[in-house]
Amino acid sequence: MRCVSRLLLGTCLLVLGPAVQGAPSPGQCPSLCHCHGDLQHVICDSVGLKRIPRVSEATRLLNLQRNSLGAIPTGAFSDSKGLVSLHMQHCQLREIGSNAFKGLKKLVYLYLSNNQISSIKPGAFEDLAQLTYLHLDGNQIAELSKGIFSPMINLFVLQLDNNKLRELRPGTFAGARDLRWLHLSGNELSTLQPGSLDEVENLAVLHLDGNRMSSYPAAAMSKLRVVEELTLGGNPMRTVPDNAFQSFGRYVEKLHLDSMGLEKFSDGAFTGVTAVKSLHLDNNKLRSLPKSLEFTTITNLTLSNNPWSCTCQLAPLRRWMDSSRTRPDAMCASPPAQKGKQVRDSPAFSGCRVKAKKAKKGSRH
């Protein structure tokens, strides 16, 4: 797999510094660092650097994580044109300036996780046409300017978890048409504006859990075609509308809709969803499930901590439980005679099954 093979090249790191050390003599490892493979790997992890060291064009991996670098000055990597993997995690970086990575035309991996980055200047990612994996999680980013990722025509994975993003606007991902994994968990997103995901319609993995969206972003999601995994858990949504997942319903296999305070699904919420295998609905306020939810392909279903109403409306769920190898916890809250019973054990559905069989039998005549 593309992700795995490339990730074998290195581990995460963060770089930003107020100054740059002079270039080492040919064949010399930078002071305080240790080097491998004729300077192809330069490791400066946790060595107390205050400045970004110069490395030769032969260097492929530069590990600078856990140093106090603060910023990335212009020209910091002008002698490092052969870099493929750059690690700058935990470097107390505060800003990514314009042309911060100028000259790194071969860079594939850029790790900037767990810094204090609050500002990314226009042109910050200039020259990064080969960049495939960008990790910006664990920072203080509140806003992304239009087209900030546009130089990254090969971007495949973008990690923006645990920042302070409040909204996504149209044009944010312009140019990044190859993006497949977008991680936005643990931000402060209250809305995804219509059109904000139009440029990344080929997303396969979209993580939006742990944000502040009170309504399902139907307009923003409508252009997505091949989402296989969607996480929305922890957003305070009371309802999910009709056709919510329809545009990618043939592909979606994992849906995380847990811990949201969900009270109901519209009857057509799952219209077009034909491939879902894992569905997580635990820790909500659901009493019933919509008619559009098909259980045929589901192999992993979580339902606990919901006030289920054990009436015939839940009969399809009970029939699935009876035929499934796994019988998830789901407690009846009503009617009073069934309160406290597990859905899988409740006798409330016996009449529903008889009625279904009679109706089927009658249809033969």
Rank of each mutant, 00 (worst) to 15 (best):
L281V: 15
H365R: 15
H90K: 10
L192V: 10
G210E: 02
N211A: 12
S266H: 15
P30M: 08
L155P: 05
R2A: 12
V226K: 14
H34I: 05
D198S: 15
P316S: 07
P122W: 03
D242W: 09
L144A: 04
M237L: 09
Y111K: 07
P194Q: 01
P24R: 09
T274N: 12
N283T: 06
N115Q: 11
S98W: 08
G268A: 11
S119M: 11
G97L: 04
V42K: 04
N202D: 07
R327I: 06
K105L: 14
R364Q: 03
E143Y: 03
C35F: 07
K105A: 14
P170C: 11
R94G: 13
K121V: 15
R250F: 09
N202M: 09
V276P: 02
L192Y: 05
T299H: 00
N235C: 11
S190I: 06
G27M: 04
D127H: 14
S214N: 08
L165V: 02
V108F: 04
P236C: 04
L289T: 09
A23R: 01
V84R: 12
D329K: 02
I141P: 00
L62A: 09
S145I: 03
F156I: 14
L224Y: 01
S350I: 05
M221I: 01
I120M: 13
Q338D: 10
R177A: 08
N211E: 15
A204S: 14
R238H: 12
K277D: 08
T296I: 08
L189S: 06
S56D: 14
D345G: 01
F248V: 12
G340T: 10
T302R: 11
S247L: 14
W181A: 06
R364I: 13
C310H: 08
I72C: 07
I120E: 08
Y111I: 00
C312T: 13
R177C: 08
S150Y: 12
T302C: 03
R325Y: 12
F248H: 03
L293M: 10
K50V: 04
L7A: 10
R250W: 08
R364D: 05
I96E: 07
G48P: 00
M152A: 02
Q28D: 14
V47H: 02
L49V: 07
K105I: 15
V240S: 10
H90C: 12
A204Y: 02
G103M: 11
K254P: 00
P307Y: 10
C310P: 06
V15T: 08
S350H: 13
N235G: 11
D322C: 00
K357D: 07
A124I: 06
N243C: 05
K81D: 02
K254C: 07
R353E: 13
K164L: 14
K291F: 02
N114R: 14
L110A: 15
L289P: 03
V205L: 12
C332F: 03
L155K: 00
A315N: 13
Q140N: 08
L189H: 01
G234S: 05
E199W: 01
